[in-house]
Simulated assay, not measured.
Amino acid sequence: MENLNTYITEILILLFILITFLQSGVDKMMDWSGNTGWLKEHFSKTFLAGMVPLMVGIILVIEVVVGLLAIAGIYTLISNGDSGLGLLASILACVTLLMLLFGQRVAKDYAGAFTLTGYFIVCILGVWMMN
């Protein structure tokens, strides 16, 4: 229980990452056609238009991996104070958000790109705290 108190900030960040990324990945799995259909329209006037299913698939896999790493990171922080998996989850979450930011900027969805900022701040704070 001592590690829970010692690493509460890191655990809360990893819970945020877990909820954000695993839910997003599961949503993509449950509503593949809805997600890809919307994104095909979103990217229709960009050089990414023909790559939407591939991009969604890549993001889906990474989001699920991030969520699973966050679970493992929480466990290892509580059990033995090891932040390695939490750090990996935070780094991969940041990389995923940068990929999403790139897509939003290419699609000229500047408001959508801006909304990613809050998520990125939390994830980069996780990198900083667990590094």
Rank of each mutant, 00 (worst) to 15 (best):
E2R: 15
E2Y: 14
E2H: 14
N3Y: 05
L4V: 10
N5H: 11
T6W: 04
T6C: 05
Y7C: 10
I8H: 07
E10T: 02
I11Y: 02
I11P: 11
I11A: 07
L15P: 13
I19K: 02
L22Y: 11
Q23S: 15
G25C: 03
D31H: 09
W32I: 13
N35R: 11
T36E: 05
W38Q: 02
W38I: 02
K40C: 03
K40R: 02
K40H: 06
K40V: 04
K40W: 07
H42K: 12
T46G: 09
V52D: 00
M55P: 12
I59D: 00
L60Q: 13
V61Q: 01
E63P: 15
L68D: 03
L69I: 06
A70V: 08
A70T: 07
G73Y: 03
T76E: 14
S79N: 11
G81R: 10
G86F: 01
L87T: 05
S90K: 01
I91R: 04
L92D: 01
L92Q: 06
L92V: 12
V106P: 10
A107T: 05
D109Y: 13
D109M: 09
A111Q: 11
A111L: 08
G112D: 09
F114V: 12
T115V: 15
G118Y: 03
G118H: 08
Y119N: 14
F120T: 03
F120P: 08
I121M: 11
C123Y: 06
G126C: 05
G126F: 08
W128T: 14
N131G: 12
